[in-house]
Design a protein around this nucleic acid. Structure first.
Ligand code: ZN
Ligand code: ZN
Ligand code: ZN
Ligand code: ZN
Lengths: 133, 133
DNA sequence: CTTATATATGTTATATTATTACATATTGTT
DNA sequence: AACAATATGTAATAATATAACATATATAAG
C-alpha cells in the first residue's frame, strides 16, 4: 500500500502531518495540528506526537523548544546533524531557521572547559525581525 | 517587613524558591518545586510560576527549555544579557551552564542574512558528559 | 500619616502539552 | 506461511502552564 522507512519515505500519518507543517507559514503546535488533521482521520494526540517524534528524528521538522511548536526544516543538512539554529521575533513570533556555515562550524568546533565537543545543539536567537524593528 | 525590587532583593516566595533551586545539584521542574515548598506555605502552581518568571527576568535562574526545568545562574553576567548556553548530558541529564567569553562574543556578534544581531539567545548543547563517555 | 499606585500573594478553576497502557494492523523478511 | 519490527487506533491520565479574581503589602507622593 505504501513504502516504508528503508527508502526513507513517510508513513500515512507522518505524511499528512508533515504536509501540514511544511505548507504552514508559521510553526504549528501539536494540538493545532491535531485539530487540522481530524478530517483526515487522525483523532488522538498520541497519533500526532508519534508522527512528530519520527519526523524530528528524521530531521524533516524541528521543535522550537521555547515555543512548543514545530517547523519544517528549511535546510538540507539537518537530517544528519541535529544541529539547529533559529531566529525568533519576540513581537510577531516570526521564526526562521538560520543556515550559516560559519555559525555551524563555530558551534560544531566549540570545546567546553573539559575539551568536550558537541555535534548536536539547538540555538534560539531572540530579537525583532525586519518588519517589527 | 522586607525590601523590594529597588534594591533588587527577593520577595518571600521568590527567596524560598530561589534558595531551593540554588542549592539543588540539578535543574528542578515547577511541580517538583511546588511539592518541595508546600511546607513553607506555597500551595499553588501559580505561586511557583510567578516566582520563576520573576527570577528568570532578573537572571537569577534560567529555564532549560528542552527540559522544562530551572537552574540557578552559575555566571555573573546573565542578569544583564539573557544570553545563555548550556551543555546537557543525554545519558545522565547533568546540565552545566557554559561561561565562555569567546562563545558569548561570537554569538553576540553573529549577524544573520539580514545583518541582524541578537543580544538575547539560548543555546543548548547535547552530548555525553565526562562520566558517561 | 494618608492616599494612591504598583507589585506581590492567595485561591480556584481551567487550559495546554505530553505520555502510559494496551489492543490491533501493516510492513518487510525469512 | 510465519515471524519480527514498525505503525496505528483508542482511552485514560499525567505533566506543564495560565486565566480570573480577590486580597495584601510595599514604595512614593502629598
Ligand atoms: Zn533544519
Ligand atoms: Zn516581527
Ligand atoms: Zn547564567
Ligand atoms: Zn552524563
Amino acid at each position: 500500500m505504501r513504502r516504508m522507512h528503508k527508502e526513507n519515505n513517510l508513513t500515512k500519518n507522518q505524511q499528512i502531518i508533515f504536509d501540514l507543517i511544511d505548507k504552514s507559514p508559521e510553526p504549528l503546535k501539536a494540538y493545532s495540528i491535531l485539530f487540522n488533521v481530524q478530517k483526515k482521520g487522525i483523532k488522538a494526540p498520541l497519533q500526532v506526537y508519534r508522527a512528530l517524534d519520527k519526523l524530528v528524528e528524521m530531521g524533516k521538522i524541528h521543535k522550537i523548544e521555547s515555543r512548543n511548536a514545530f517547523i519544517a526544516c528549511q535546510n538540507s543538512s539537518c537530517q544528519v546533524s541535529k544541529a539547529t539554529a533559529f531566529s525568533i521575533c519576540e513581537m510577531c513570533e516570526k521564526i526562521t531557521e538560520i543556515s550559516s556555515s560559519s555559525l555551524s562550524k563555530y558551534l560544531a568546533n566549540f570545546k567546553d572547559k573539559d575539551g568536550m565537543k558537541y555535534s548536536k545543539y539547538n540555538l534560539e536567537f531572540f530579537g525583532l525581525c525586519k518588519k517589527c524593528r
